[in-house]
């Protein structure tokens, strides 16, 4: 494992912790898209089917459990917690996320590295993760005024994707046995590009020390 991969995983972990912290301490999920959170829970569930059948490392297993556990806890908070669920911007979070799931599944059935159940589900999770942030970005655009924790959450997620790309470039040159993974690379690149616009406004707001405000 290289430093970029580790830094990517840590920013990913921090993004989830920031979100849980916001929900747990402020008892609010304002500005957070439930649609995106549902997609992430589905992404992790589909990707980590090998958690009990294939052992890579303790690090891998623990991180998978954390991502699964945290994503389903966030869903629980937003749907079931009697205080938190009242702060959910239901009327603004209208992205029809179900329409992302089917095309990703069809694409995974058509374009994959190996036509087995686990491999197709894994590929599906890669495609779905690439677009899962869309409902969240649409919600941010609608709310326009973004609170600090929500802004940090999306920033950390984007940073995680950026670091993973550097990790792939590093692995490609540093590991002789590392082969080309077009599916992961293209999906990962697309996913990172989706954050570009947000990054621009986020960095400007940090630089000028003002609240993040997205254009209408």
């Amino acid at each position: 494992m290289n430093i970029f991969r580790l830094a990517g995983d840590m920013t990913h972990l921090m993004s989830v912790l920031v979100l849980l912290l916001k929900i747990h301490t402020i008892k609010s999920c304002a500005g957070i898209s439930l649609k995106t959170q549902e997609l992430y829970a589905l992404v992790f569930a589909a990707r980590y089917l090998d958690i009990f059948t294939h052992y890579y490392s303790l690090y891998n297993t623990v991180m998978k459990l954390i991502f699964l556990g945290s994503s389903f806890s966030i869903l629980w908070y937003m749907k079931r917690h009697k205080v938190v669920r009242r702060s959910y911007d239901k009327d603004q979070d209208t992205f029809r996320h179900h329409f992302l799931v089917l095309p990703c599944l069809v694409l995974a059935l058509l374009i994959n590295e190996k036509f087995t159940f686990k491999e197709v589900m894994w590929t599906f999770s890669i495609y779905l993760e690439a677009v899962a942030i869309l409902p969240q970005l649409v919600l941010l655009q609608r709310t326009r005024n973004v609170d600090n924790l929500t802004g940090q959450y999306v920033f950390l997620l984007g940073a995680y994707r950026g670091l993973y790309i550097i990790n792939w470039i590093y692995r490609y040159f540093a590991e002789p046995t590392y082969s080309t993974h077009w599916i992961t690379w293209i999906s990962g690149l697309l996913q990172t590009l989706l954050y570009a616009d947000f990054f621009y406004y986020y960095i400007n707001s940090v630089k000028n020390n003002v609240r993040l405000q997205l254009p209408a």
């Binding site: 991969r5 995983d9 990913h12 990707r47 090998d50 294939h54 890579y56 891998n60 991180m63 998978k64 991502f67 590295e113 894994w122 993973y164 990790n167 046995t177 590392y178 992961t184």
Partner: peptide, 10 residues
């Protein structure tokens, strides 16, 4: 699973 290193990322 002939390529155990295939999905070693999260």
């Amino acid at each position: 699973d002939s390529q155990p290193e295939l999905h070693d990322e999260l």
